[in-house]
Structure formats: C-alpha cells, structure tokens
C-alpha cells in the first residue's frame, strides 16, 4: 500500500529511522525517485529531467564518462561526480564505450554536462533526505 500524502516525511516520532537513508539511496539510484516516493511529484519530475537531460546532452556532445580505475586524481574526481547520476552513469557507460571527442570543444562541454548531472542529482538526494527527515518541506 502506498503511503498517504507526506506520511513518510512527517516527524511524528513513530517514523522508521531506516526510511530517510532508503529514500536517499532511491533518490541516488534513479534521479527523482526519492521525491516520487515522498509524493513530491513536481520535484521528482524536475530532478529527473534536469539530471537526465544533462547526462543525455553530455552524451550527445560526446563527453567523457570517467571510469573507476583512473589513476589521474582529476579522473577520480570526475568518476565521483559522474557516479552521482546513479542509473544514468550506468547507461552512459554502457552506451558510450569510446573516449571523449577531444577534437571539438563540444566534447569538453559534454564532459562537464555529465559531471553536472551527477552533482545535480546529489543535490536532489540531499533534498529528498531532508524531506524524509522532516527538516524540509
């Protein structure tokens, strides 16, 4: 049974302490899912479109999707930023097996778009966690 409006986010004292971390994990795996579970429809759609849009435009611009085994510190930072986009990271890794298109500036823009997708989703995770804890509305 689905929870009623705002029932997961209200701090009534009987809230399961495992709910906010689970909401945060759901929000990380699929951008907007945390807000969807909290019945914040508009925010769920907004975060999904923003994070997904940035990732897909970054892919179309032939940006670089960083791998976990990079020895370069900037590559590691790029991986952490990219990983923030959750399922979109896995999609980008599976779709784009080649390296970034560095022959044009748009390839570099694409790399930034993909990193921004992850950062935007981290913002969504923090927001969903705050709502689930009752600290945000």
């Amino acid at each position: 049974m689905m929870p009623t409006e705002g029932s997961l986010s209200q701090s009534s004292g009987k809230q399961n302490p495992a709910v906010p971390p689970l909401i945060a994990i759901a929000a990380w795996i699929v951008p907007g899912l945390g807000h969807l579970l909290l019945r914040r429809w508009a925010r769920a759609l907004g975060f999904f479109l923003a994070s997904g849009g940035l990732a897909l435009v970054g892919l179309a611009l032939r940006g670089e999707v960083f791998a976990s085994y990079s020895k370069d510190p900037f590559g590691l930072l790029g991986f952490l930023a990219d990983l923030g986009s959750g399922i979109f990271y896995l999609i980008l890794r599976s779709v784009e097996a080649a390296a970034a298109d560095i022959s044009r500036a748009s390839g570099d823009y694409g790399t930034r778009f993909i990193a921004a997708s992850g950062i935007v989703n981290v913002l969504g995770v923090i927001d969903a966690y705050g709502i689930a804890r009752g600290r945000r509305v």
Partner: peptide, 18 residues
C-alpha cells in the same frame, strides 16, 4: 547554445530544491 542548455537544466534543479 551549450551555456543556455546548461543554464536551463541547472536552473530547474535549483528551483526544485527547497
């Protein structure tokens, strides 16, 4: 064009937060 696209998508995310 890239800057406009980036600004639009990030603005949506900022607006959705809080």
């Amino acid at each position: 064009g890239a800057m406009l696209t980036f600004a639009l998508l990030v603005s949506v995310a900022f607006a959705c937060s809080g």
